[in-house]
Design a protein around this nucleic acid. Structure first.
Lengths: 214, 214
DNA sequence: AGCATTGATGTCAGTCACTGACATAGCAAG
DNA sequence: CTTGCTATGTCAGTGACTGACATCAATGCT
């Protein structure tokens, strides 16, 4: 069974020039915070660590991607947890198990996560990239659920609900005034979504039905 | 009370050169379908309707945005319907009402919607833009729900669940093999999400709990 | 009719993200 | 010491997007 560190560890550490990648990512975050994303040029980032624009693009496909290196690891973690969830777990329970393990991922990097999120929240281009990462994560989760024998429709709906919940939990977890644990916030959000959907049963004096009957 | 056509009608029609915008959008979709998004240049699109690259950018902020002109109207429609939903409707019912009216929007434009979606599905850049539109729509819905007196947490969760459901419905509605009505697909998806969330109650032989107790 | 105004468009020069082709240099293994 | 691999540099180029300024036709006012 893979441990968290197994999954997180980047196996292929080339011996020279150990961490151009890391240094570029750090410099990028710093500059994005100082000058803003749009007002910092890739050449600047590279120069700040003694490298060239061209080298930056050999490490990151994109000016945006430099902030999203960890999302692959995140996805691997969630998927792995979901596949190991108890066989009798329902789809939403499996997703919950997958999301719960992320608490251990963010706890140590709280301050970094806040800075990163501050930049993203100021930059539409980065928000768009974040959304595509979430979308990719949803697909990964849906796939994992299908391997648990769940049909595609249920799997993708469950996965996307998982993302909705993840985003809600993360936003509140990151908030400086938050006191609650990751797991606690997760349970609250799950419960809230369940409650919301139970609201489907409410009898209406017919407004929806009115159109349907036409 | 505003009608659909009231909302959709673009009030400020300048009399000259009435539809450079429309013609650019049409040419763009056509070219994106033929050559693919990345292999068509903005200059080409403009040239195809006898205009200049610079003029394109006066009508659309972006090479992508040319495919998303109708999303503002869509958002206005949904929001308007939600605000007019019966007072006793639960949050998810209000959202359902909002989504239902979209059936009338897509039915007449089915073929166009399919072509547009075909291009988007082939182009990551456009998928990202689509996700930001959905995100914006979610914010609009959440705001509308808050104006109905719903707290922010419930409102934004309901709104994002609404988006998840919308995407599921739309994807199936667009599918050439689909026979079901928009409303029918909507009801199915709502019911499915409710069922999924009900799966939270399943008693587990403890896998989730195991970690929590540690 | 004549003239000033306004809004849509054109022209031009420039910035910056990103790419392909080719060159260099350090370290490793034989 | 030579051969090879890999990270990096250099350079030229494309295409999205912007700002500044010019043009031109339709409008409205006199």
């Amino acid at each position: 069974m893979m441990s968290i560190t197994d999954i997180l560890y980047n196996g292929s550490m080339s011996r020279w020039q150990s961490d151009a990648q890391q240094r570029l990512a750090q410099a990028a975050l710093t500059l994005y915070l100082e000058r803003g994303f749009e007002r910092t040029t890739v050449a600047e980032i590279a120069a700040h660590v003694g490298l060239t624009e061209r080298t930056f693009f050999r490490h990151f496909s994109d000016k945006r991607e430099v902030l999203f290196g960890s999302s692959n690891q995140l996805q691997a973690l969630v998927v792995s947890a979901i596949m190991q969830a108890h066989k009798s777990a329902t789809p939403i329970q499996a997703v919950a198990v997958g999301l719960e393990v992320l608490g251990e991922l963010f706890a140590p990097r709280l301050e970094w996560s806040r800075q990163r999120q501050a930049v993203i929240n100021q930059t539409p281009e980065l928000q768009a990239r974040e959304l595509t990462k979430f979308n990719s994560l949803a697909h990964g989760i849906a796939e994992a659920l299908q391997q648990r024998g769940i049909n595609e429709f249920t799997a993708s709906l469950s996965a996307e609900i998982g993302i909705v919940i993840f985003r809600a939990v993360f936003e509140r977890y990151i908030n400086p005034s938050n006191q609650k644990s990751w797991t606690h916030l997760l349970e609250e959000s799950l419960e809230q979504v369940k409650t919301i959907m139970a609201g489907l049963n409410n009898r209406l004096p017919d407004v929806v039905g009115a159109k349907r009957r036409r």
